[in-house]
């Protein structure tokens, strides 16, 4: 495969992961997930009393997500990210175990260099594990971009996201490997989409196994864990 990407990566290569857990004192759980220049901090508070009693749910806990960009105010684009992340996380958290409570997940972006939603979901998974929230499995997410020449880039940077034809954010669960979330932007042929599925599945599995390793290292003593970048064979 020829080397066509600006930062010298192969088409099917994801950036190296780096993470740190329990870095906030007051939060019940927190984690920072970094992929080169994309870095997100997630903090989890919960289960706590519902702040706005109108939103209280009788049979399950309320999941509240707030997403703050690194610069500027929150815009409608951030609200969309909040909704996507919330839907993805709601399906892996066992919300029925703590009815009439709230679980708040707060994201702060340190720096955004593409694949920021995936980065946030992975950070949230680590933070939820750190907070000891009951979950039915783990979640891993990856972003793909489809170029005009029909090539697929895994884990694109901000530049590549801007230049591509279409973009898809995909999240897989560790249980029975089902797709938890998928969001596609731009026009995309069906062939190309189905061709990319095994690739994204493989990449998410890598993310999930990294998350497992990071949590294991945390419990056994070391707080931060990092890997070298990996190529995904589909």
């Amino acid at each position: 495969m020829t080397n066509t990407r600006n930062d010298g990566r192969l088409n099917n290569q994801i950036r190296a992961f780096e993470s740190e857990q329990s870095l906030l004192n007051k939060a019940d759980g927190s984690a920072r997930f970094t992929q080169n220049k994309s870095s997100v901090l997630a903090a989890v508070y919960g289960p706590i009393e519902v702040k706005n009693s109108r939103k209280q749910k009788i049979l399950k806990s309320l999941i509240e997500v707030s997403f703050t960009p690194s610069v500027g105010n929150t815009t409608y684009l951030d609200k969309e990210k909040e909704l996507l992340i919330k839907n993805a996380l709601e399906s892996i958290i066992l919300t029925t175990l703590h009815p009439r409570t709230q679980i708040s997940i707060i994201f702060q972006v340190f720096s955004d260099d593409g694949s920021i939603i995936s980065c946030a979901i992975n950070a949230a998974c680590l933070a939820l594990l750190d907070a000891g929230i009951e979950m039915q499995g783990l979640i891993g997410s990856v972003t793909l971009c489809y170029n005009h020449d029909k090539s697929i880039y895994l884990d694109p940077t901000a530049q590549e996201e801007k230049e591509c034809k279409s973009l898809s954010v995909i999240a897989y669960g560790s249980q029975s490997s089902q797709i938890i979330m998928n969001k596609t932007e731009g026009t995309l042929s069906m062939d190309l989409y189905f061709k990319s599925l095994p690739l994204s599945k493989e990449a998410c599995d890598k993310v999930i196994s990294y998350i497992k390793l990071a949590v294991k290292n945390r419990i056994m003593g070391t707080i931060s864990t990092n890997t070298t970048s990996t190529t995904i064979e589909s």
Binding site: S22, D28, G29, G46, P47, I48, L94, H98, L129, D130, A131, G132, I133, E134, M135, Q136, V215, I219
Partner: peptide, 28 residues
Amino acid sequence: IIASKSGILRYSKHHKFYWIENEQKRYI
């Protein structure tokens, strides 16, 4: 029997009791 948290599985022989030990801060 499925785990729902991350941590170390512990067993008390005396009580025939299994649980997961972790470093969480929130009390249930």
